[in-house]
Design a protein around this nucleic acid. Structure first.
Lengths: 126, 126
DNA sequence: TTGTCATATCATGATATTGTGATATGTTAA
DNA sequence: TTAACATATCACAATATCATGATATGACAA
């Protein structure tokens, strides 16, 4: 298709009254988006929300802080699965925990997590 | 480990002054979370945000509506890649489009998308 | 110490997702 | 008609992610 090479030369002007030329538009929007590294980091962050088990954990913790075994019971999942997902959630700064004897009490890192979860839920329910 | 079978019998009471019994807690939080189907749908929805190319498209469209070739140019990606990701974004109700001659002008479906994107960005930048 | 419990880590096969080349569709202009 | 362009779909190899079994760690009780 060789779009890249041709695109700037053969602009069709049939919509210039309504919209700016493509060249102008492209230049303008390019300036206003984050850089590569931030997109990578952000996509890693959102990837965490893209798994039902992790979402369930986030959902539980948005109600109240819980230890691992309570999460296992509430979700009827085995301990390895929950623990593995908690590790991923921890590594991505989505949950934090506090050791209490042999237990580990997990909670959400901050309000952003709850907001994102709730806005998403709102979106799919409407 | 057989946690499931033992858990209800051998509750350790050493934290009952501070926290409710595990049984109570588990019962209570279980009631307050969505059902299986909603978690599946929500995770499919969030999965879309977990890819840098799609995030870039969302980011561009949060600045202004764009046609496919402008997106290709702005992101320096080939047309197939962009078109494929746009299909996924469409299928998941994240972008919509309007045909204008041979062009297709894409925009974000609603404000939820922009909110989620921006809260996420805020989270990783802090 | 030894045992048990709560949790974490490692390894892995099954499955899903990625970007992209090849190709198709549909629109406009000549 | 034919050609050129904008966009969409298909097919696929490379890569990533999943849940889970096996196993390790670390705390407390006996």
């Amino acid at each position: 298709m060789e779009m890249k090479n041709n695109n700037l030369e053969n602009q069709n002007d049939d919509m210039c009254e309504i919209y700016d030329s493509h060249e102008e538009v492209v230049g303008r929007v390019k300036e206003r988006i984050p850089d590569e590294a931030e997109f990578t980091e952000l996509s890693e962050f959102f990837k965490i929300f893209g798994n039902p088990t992790r979402l369930k954990i986030i959902s539980l913790l948005s109600v109240e802080d819980l230890c691992v075994c309570d999460i296992c019971e509430a979700l009827e999942l085995n301990q390895t699965t929950v623990s593995n997902q908690l590790r991923i959630l921890r590594a991505n700064n989505i949950v934090k925990y506090q050791k209490e004897g042999k237990m580990a009490r997990y909670s959400l890192t901050d309000l952003h997590i709850e907001m994102i979860y709730k806005v998403g839920l709102e979106h799919i329910l409407e």
